[in-house]
Design a protein around this nucleic acid. Structure first.
Length: 569
RNA sequence: UGGGGCGUGGUGAAGCGGUAACACAGCGGACUUUGGAUCCGUUAUUCGGAGGUUCGAAUCCUCCCGCCCCAGCCA
């Protein structure tokens, strides 16, 4: 009953649990569960559910959260998904301990529960076709009609149900239905289907079964079997709650969990439907479920997001019942916040511009000291080679600088981070295109380390890499996968794919990066000074052929000034 | 037009009859060897609307409006 994490302001679900605890409703037990169907990869919306369910278990003494695969539909599910789901949950930092379950493990029990319902006259075998069942169901405004098979005898129902199990019927020829109320205003209560025939091999039970329970039947009973106290799910199941309760009441089970619904997480510029994400994968709009642009856990992980940042997002967005869309800027804030204190700084040039320091000795090389992270001096320093020919960022030079541009320009002096002040003395252009291809500069030997003793001020500080020592890396820049805040905002006749961002991936090759990166390990994260946070790609990066993913850029106030038109000359 | 939910600033979200927390975004400034980080200031006389109850309402009542979900043998 003690709260381990008492700093969190309670949300409505935690309030309910707190009151239940106070009233000793479940003998002080708190048991939640995360019940994914293994038919796709987990995404950041699932992370929210995971964070709520496992989080609540963690906060309550003796609290437990089960991982249960809701594997009742063999045609959509497979083992690959089970494995990915397990590793994603672990990577997020949650542990189900010994509480790993499968709804398919309960098939025998579920079958007996169904038989019990039949014996009690609360379920029947219906031999209407799928189409007929739909017609008989009625509409939102008109009541349904009772099935002609509704009043079969218990004996006949039992025999038929057994024959269904034995495989004596074809798919679709019969279903088991609950006998509730065809006139109910809640369509879920109009004699819902409990079991269907599917002659299909299941990834765990093989060919043992050819009838499979429906979600509504399997879910509540699985919860009950496991002794779940609070069954937390998303809003769209609100209408299923009366059925959840009906089944448990009809069977008079000992454990009757409480279903509580909350609003799923939505992010701007993102889709969060497994079906649609699968479409992007299968139709090759992205390169797999773990494409760094995907909102999947595996995609975010490969991109370089930390579990901590994702957990943080889940906490900051709160738990409520109103449909909402969280600004993706909050996710970006969370990862910057985390990486700002953890990521070592390093210099890398994305779009190189050659700079020759004319007054620097031809063959000289100096090793300059650089702090690894100004936020954390404990992370130490490293040495960076400096020589006569360097690369700087193309963006850091303007021949005709606008107002408030304090980077390099003809005649201007700037600081090279950790190195020297340099002044631009000459600009070399391509004769045909007019493109700036090289800069000539002079350096001030008295400013070693980037300081001057004469009180001279320089506004700009640039990052750079020594040309002779640079490693050449591939850098992948990502933008939002969609161009619109709401990807579903489309003209009639098209779908979310019309809003795909063509520029969501840009590959830069041969980017000069500082030699200290030679041993960078896959998955390690760095801040490329003045640019953003980058992660060594776990799939494509090789020693000697490094590949970096941009996780997120740094906040760029110059870009904002320029965009606002304040940087005009 | 059946049923179930939800409406608080740009986005999330507290508030539970005593006079609108917090976070992100934005804007302004300070500081700065990352135009990063950090710090400070600032943004709802008002809580979907209209009535009503009350000394007092985002909170209680009535009516209205808007948005989301439900007619799979998916979950």
């Amino acid at each position: 009953m003690k709260s381990i994490n008492s700093t969190r302001p309670p949300d409505f679900i935690r309030n309910i649990i707190r009151q239940d605890l106070k009233a000793n409703k479940n003998n002080g037990r708190v048991v939640t569960r995360f019940p994914p169907e293994p038919n796709g990869y987990l995404h950041i919306g699932h992370a929210k559910s995971i964070s709520i369910n496992f989080g609540i278990a963690l906060e309550n003494e003796g609290g437990v959260c089960h991982l249960r695969f809701d594997d009742t539909n063999p045609s959509k599910e497979n083992i690959e998904y089970i494995e990915s789901i397990k590793s994603d949950i672990q990577w997020l930092g949650f542990d189900w301990g010994k509480h790993l379950y499968y709804a398919s493990d309960y098939f025998e029990k579920l079958y007996r529960y169904a038989a019990q319902l039949i014996k009690d006259g609360k379920a029947y075998v219906c031999s209407l076709s799928a189409e007929e069942i739909r017609e008989y169901r009625g509409t939102l405004t008109e009541p349904g009609k009772e099935s002609p098979y509704r009043n079969r005898s218990v004996k006949e129902n039992l025999e038929l149900f057994e024959q269904m199990r034995k495989g004596e019927f074809e798919d679709g020829s019969h279903v088991l239905r609950a006998k509730i109320d065809m006139a109910s205003p809640n369509l879920n209560m109009r004699d819902p289907v409990l079991y269907r025939i599917r002659h299909e091999s299941h990834h765990r039970t093989g060919n043992k079964w050819c009838i499979y329970p429906m979600y509504d039947f399997a879910h509540c009973l699985s919860d009950s079997i496991e002794g779940i106290t609070h069954s937390i799910c998303t809003l769209e199941f609100e209408d299923n709650r009366p059925l959840y309760d009906w089944i448990l009441n009809a069977l008079n089970v000992d454990c009757h969990p409480q279903q509580i619904e909350f609003a799923r997480l939505n992010l701007s510029y993102t889709i969060m439907s497994k079906r649609e994400l699968r479409q992007l994968v299968e139709e090759e709009y992205v390169n797999g479920w773990d494409d760094p642009r995907m909102p999947t856990i595996s995609g975010l992980r490969r991109r370089g997001y930390t579990a901590e940042a994702i957990r943080n997002l889940c906490e900051r967005t709160g738990v409520a019942k109103s449909n909402s869309v969280v600004d993706i800027a909050l996710l970006e804030y969370c990862i910057r916040e985390d990486l700002n204190r953890r990521a070592p700084r390093v210099m890398a040039v994305l779009r190189p511009l050659r700079v020759v320091i004319d007054n620097y000795p031809e063959k000289q090389v100096e090793e300059l000291d650089a702090q690894n992270n100004p936020e954390d001096p404990g992370m130490g320093t490293r040495r960076i080679p400096f020589s006569r020919v360097l690369y700087i960022e193309q963006d850091d030079f303007r021949e005709d600088p606008p107002k408030k541009f304090f980077r390099l320009a003809p005649g201007r002096e700037v600081r090279l981070k950790h190195a020297y002040y340099i002044k631009c003395t000459d600009v070399v252009k391509d004769k045909k295109t007019g493109e700036v291809i090289e800069l000539h500069c002079t350096y001030d030997p008295a400013t070693r380390g980037g300081w001057s003793s004469d009180g001279r001020k320089v506004r700009g500080t640039l990052h750079w890499v020594s040309a002779a020592h640079a490693l050449k890396a591939e850098v992948r820049l990502y933008e939002h996968l969609f161009t619109k805040t709401n990807p579903h905002d489309v003209k009639d006749g098209s779908d979310f794919k019309a809003n795909l961002n063509r520029h969501s991936l840009e590959k830069l090759t041969s980017c000069p990066v500082e030699p200290n990166l030679a041993d960078a390990k896959p998955g390690s994260r760095y801040q490329f000074l003045r640019q953003g946070y980058f992660c060594v790609d776990c799939v494509d990066s090789r020693q000697g052929a490094l590949v970096f993913n941009r996780i997120v850029s740094l906040r760029d106030s110059w870009a904002r000034i320029e965009k606002a038109g304040k940087g005009k000359s």
